[in-house]
């Protein structure tokens, strides 16, 4: 990463609260301006992540989302506004991010992330932020990031619950934590069980902060720890998470060496219509 970009007077002013911090400084700010971060999902978690990374001046922010803005999204997805209903989420997100900070580049990937396109989409980014809303995508993004050796800043939410961790390649992955996906219907999703809108702000902001720490190379990341948040008691607990030597992806004798069919893996009807019992 070259550091010879000079900050304009406008940028010095915009980022002054970063630059004044010894842990960031003008060198750190230039690092952020040259960084490339990919956010999976421009929804509940993707919204606060994208907003804070845009405000922080992360130079290139990619967004992957195939969906359009729905009225039911507006209870929590702060990238999208009332007038955006019906618009592609990546478009609405790009407009919101540029309204906050015109100084950054936003790359729209208006598609569903799949085993076919995941490597192509992820390969040029430095860090990936996971804000996917379903288990097949979570396992897919986990596997793709491990195989491409990309740091993955994970987060998930449901009802009053939140979780976050960072997966650094070779230091444990989502499969070390949850080797087996829950069967269809065993864990509800947000559209079935609901979610407190503010939970997305808590976890998505933690993901943004972890991403900035990784890019700046400062502090102790959540890598090797799982953070569990219960908003009803407002308790935050962490526990250590190690690489599992028996993990099929990152263990000593891996059996997963390429991307698989994640719909089938999660016991969902596959894209060719074949239903597989879990």
């Amino acid at each position: 990463m070259t550091q010879d970009v000079k900050l304009t007077p406008q940028q010095v002013k915009r980022y002054s609260r970063h630059i004044i911090m010894p842990q960031v400084g003008s060198a750190g700010q230039r690092k952020l301006m040259q960084a490339k971060v990919l956010i999976i999902g421009a929804g509940g978690l993707g919204s606060p992540s994208a907003v804070y990374l845009a405000l922080a001046g992360v130079g290139t922010i990619g967004l992957v989302d195939f969906d359009t803005v729905d009225l039911s999204n507006l209870q929590r997805q702060i990238l999208h506004h009332n007038d955006d209903v019906g618009k592609p989420k990546v478009q609405s997100a790009k407009e919101a991010m540029h309204a906050y900070n015109p100084d950054i580049k936003v790359v729209m990937h208006q598609t569903r992330i799949t085993s076919e396109n995941a490597f192509d989409i992820i390969k040029d980014y430095d860090v990936v932020v996971n804000g996917a809303d379903n288990f097949p995508s979570r396992y897919l993004v986990n596997d793709a990031c491990y195989l491409l050796k990309k740091p993955l800043v994970d987060g998930s939410i449901l009802i009053f619950d939140g979780q976050s961790t960072v997966f650094l390649p070779g230091k444990g992955c989502y499969r070390c934590l949850f080797p087996e996906p829950p069967g269809p219907g065993e864990v509800p999703n947000c559209s079935e069980a609901g979610v407190l809108g503010a939970m997305t702000g808590i976890i998505g902001s933690i993901q943004a902060a972890e991403t900035l720490k990784l890019l700046l190379g400062i502090g102790e990341s959540l890598a090797g720890r799982l953070l569990v948040v219960d908003a009803l008691t407002m308790e935050f607990r962490t526990m250590k998470l190690r690489r599992n030597a028996k993990c099929p992806l990152c263990g000593d004798h891996p059996t997963i060496k390429e991307l698989i069919d994640y719909e089938i893996f999660c016991g969902l009807p596959s894209l060719n219509g074949q239903t597989v019992a879990h």
């Binding site: 509940g44 804000g131 996917a132 809303d133 987060g155 998930s156 619950d161 864990v187 569990v228």
Partner: peptide
Amino acid sequence: LEIVRPIGGG
């Protein structure tokens, strides 16, 4: 003990 279920929401 901490019993953690996977949650998939984003």
